[in-house]
Design a protein around this nucleic acid. Structure first.
Lengths: 135, 135
DNA sequence: TTAACTGCAAAAGTTTTGCAGGTCG
DNA sequence: CGACCTGCAAAACTTTTGCAGTTAA
């Protein structure tokens, strides 16, 4: 931890704890989560800690929904995120399913893709049979 | 156009025109773009038009960068967006490169993916040789 | 001891909403 | 004429920044 020049403080611990508990969460969700309890954290502390922890590689983020990125612990495991635009559910899928895509992108564009960083939009099995909406 | 119960108005025309000209743009960019000129559009009008036009299927959006979605015309053509986190460049790639991914997701999760809706994060050929940053 | 960190408050930026008036069809 | 739209202003949010005081190492 302090190999990166970071101190272990109580607010920091609580941010990491919240991420461990939630799996992944947007800054907004974390702020809401940590504003409660006997020692509420101000939003600025949450944002600053996400930034410093991300800089040290102690948290990562991926883009799951429309707005802000979702943060998670590195231990949370790599997977693809499938976001259903019918029900909003997030399904976690094995990254191997995107192996061909990554290989294609590398060979055709020389692009080194991080496929676990983004969410794949679509319709889950429960919603794909239903009516068609414009997201 | 008015099959969807929409009227053709001057602000609406200018939003579509701007999208045609820009290819794809975030609301923020559009607001900035349309706030200029002899008949500046207020932000609220731009946002409301993006919403109504998207509802009618006359504009679409995809998630290219961290924040807001990028809007574009349906005629703008389907492609994958490769976003380099080194230089920020957006590369357009053929959607067929993701065919295997889509098939995998359907067979393993019953998930009907829209692979042109999201951006694929990674490093372009020019940046992948260089130093490693935390995005 | 001191550089890093926190809490608070204020600022900045984006998106939404209310409302009175204008206009397309 | 009537429903849809617009412009303006204000509100609601999310995120950033400044600063003085606190604390981990």
């Amino acid at each position: 931890m302090h190999e990166a020049g970071l101190r272990m403080t109580e607010p920091r611990r609580r941010v990491l704890q919240a991420l461990e508990h939630l799996g992944h969460a947007t800054p907004e969700v974390l702020v809401g989560h940590l504003a409660q309890g006997s020692a509420p954290l101000p939003a600025s502390t949450v944002y600053r800690n996400l930034e410093s922890l991300a800089g040290a590689g102690l948290v990562r983020h991926s883009h799951m929904h429309h707005g802000a990125p979702a943060y998670h612990l590195p231990t949370h495991g790599n997977h693809l995120h499938l976001v259903c635009r019918g029900c909003g559910d997030v399904i976690e899928a094995a990254p191997e399913l995107a192996r061909d895509l990554a290989r294609n992108l590398r060979s055709t564009h020389g692009f080194d893709a991080d496929v676990t960083h983004m969410a794949i939009d679509g319709r889950c099995c429960r919603c794909s049979g239903e009516q068609r909406e414009t997201q």
